[in-house]
Design a protein around this nucleic acid. Sequence first.
DNA 1: TCAAAAGTGTTGTCAGTACACCCATGG
DNA 2: CCATGGGTGTACTGACAACACTTTTGA
Lengths: 228, 228
Amino acid sequence: MAAIQNIKVSVDAVVFGYTSKEGLSVLLIKRKIEPFKDSWALPGGLVLDDESLEDAVQRELEEETSVNINYLEQLYSFGKPGRDPRNRVVSVTYYGLVKPDGLTLEAQTDAAEAAWFNMRNCPKLAFDHQDIIVKALQRLKGKIRYEPIGFELLDEKFPFSELEKLYATVLERPIDRRNFKKKIMKFGFIIETNEKQQLESAGRPGNLFCFDQAKYFELKKQGIAFEI
Amino acid sequence: MAAIQNIKVSVDAVVFGYTSKEGLSVLLIKRKIEPFKDSWALPGGLVLDDESLEDAVQRELEEETSVNINYLEQLYSFGKPGRDPRNRVVSVTYYGLVKPDGLTLEAQTDAAEAAWFNMRNCPKLAFDHQDIIVKALQRLKGKIRYEPIGFELLDEKFPFSELEKLYATVLERPIDRRNFKKKIMKFGFIIETNEKQQLESAGRPGNLFCFDQAKYFELKKQGIAFEI
DNA sequence: TCAAAAGTGTTGTCAGTACACCCATGG
DNA sequence: CCATGGGTGTACTGACAACACTTTTGA
C-alpha cells in the first residue's frame, strides 16, 4: 500500500444522569493538558493496543470520574480530519446512563476534575464534543421511547411521578398522568411495592414502583414491544 | 503516556440492493490477498490520513466495485482485538442502499472481483464481516419503518406492488395490500403518475408512483412522522 | 378463456386522548 | 385549614385489521 497510516483511535463517553429537581445532567472533566487545557470535555482517551473499545471506555471513566455506569452503548464514530489539532484521531463514542445514587463523584484516582452539568447549563466544550452530546441526546430521546432504558436513570425503587417526569424531561413534552400510568402498567413489567416514598415536602406519599427486568425480557421474547 | 498506540482504522460497507425477483442482495468482493485470500468480504479498506471516513468509504466502493450509492449511513464500529489476524484494526462500518439500475457491476479499476449475493445465499465471509451484515440488516429493518429509506432501493418510478413487496421482504412478514396503500398514500409524499408499468408477464398493468422528497421534508418539518 | 396482478370500501375493534374530582400528608 | 402532590374512570375519536370481488392484460 501507500505510506503508513498515522491515525489514533480514542473513545469518549457521554454519561447522563437524572434527578427530578435538576433534570438531565452530563458528566464532564476539566482538561489538564493542551490542547484545550482547562476546558471542559467528555471523559475519554486513547484506546490501548490490547483492550476492546468497551474496556477502554470503562477504564477511562473509572480513571477520570470513578462513576458507576448502569448502561453503556456505542453511539457513533467521529473521524473528520482536523477534529483534534494535534493528530488525526478517530473517536468511537459511547453513551452511558447512571442511577441517581451514582451521581455523587468520589475522589478520583486521576487528578482530573470531574463534574455534573445540567444540560441547560453546559459550558463550551473542547474539540467537537458539543456535537457528540447533541448526537447522544438525540439517541436517548429516540431510544427511550421503545426500550425501557429510562429505568437506568432512576433508583431501584421510585415513585411513579419520577418516571413520568423523566419522560416529560427527555421527550420535552408534557405527559398526561393518568394515560401514562395506564399505558406503562399494562405492559406488566413494572411492579408496585407496598413501600411509600419518603416525602421531602408536602403532598400525599405515593407507592414506590420497580422495574422487573426478568419479566421484561420474558415478554420481549414473546414479541411484546415496549413503546411510549 | 505509555507506548505509542498501534491501531489501524478501516472502513467497511454493507451495500444492499433489491429486486422483487431476488429480494435483498448484498455487495461483496473477493479478497486478492492474505489473510482470507479468495474469501468473499465486504468492500472496504484503510482510511487515508487526510480523508474523512465517508470519503474513505466512497473511495473504496468506487475502487473495488464502481457502484453508485444512493444512501450511505454510519452503522457501527467494530474494534475487538484479534478481529484482524495481522494488526489491531478498528473498522468503522457503513451501510448503503443502491437503486436497481445501479445493480449492474461495471468493469472495476481495481482487479478485485465483485458480485451481488442474495441474502439467502451468502458465502462464508472473511473476518467478522458476517456480524457486520447481521447488524446492518437489523438497522435496515428498524429504520425502514420510520424513515422512508425504502425508496432508495427502488427505481425513481415504481409500481406500487414493488414497494409493498420490498416492505414484506425486509420486515419478513406479509402485508395487507389495501391497508398498506391507504396508509402510505395518506402521508401525501407519494405521487401517482399517469404512466403504466411495463409488463414482464401476464397481469393488469398498474400506474407508476414516485417519492416526492421535497414534500417529505416539508411534512417532516411540520412534525408529521412517517411510520409503517 | 384462463391465469396473473391491480384496483377498490366497509365494518368492527382497540388503543389513544381528553378531562376533574377526591385523598393523604406536612406545615 | 391550606397547599402540595397522589390516585383514579369514562366517553369520544381515530387508526388499524380483516376481508372479496371486479378489471385489465398476456398467453
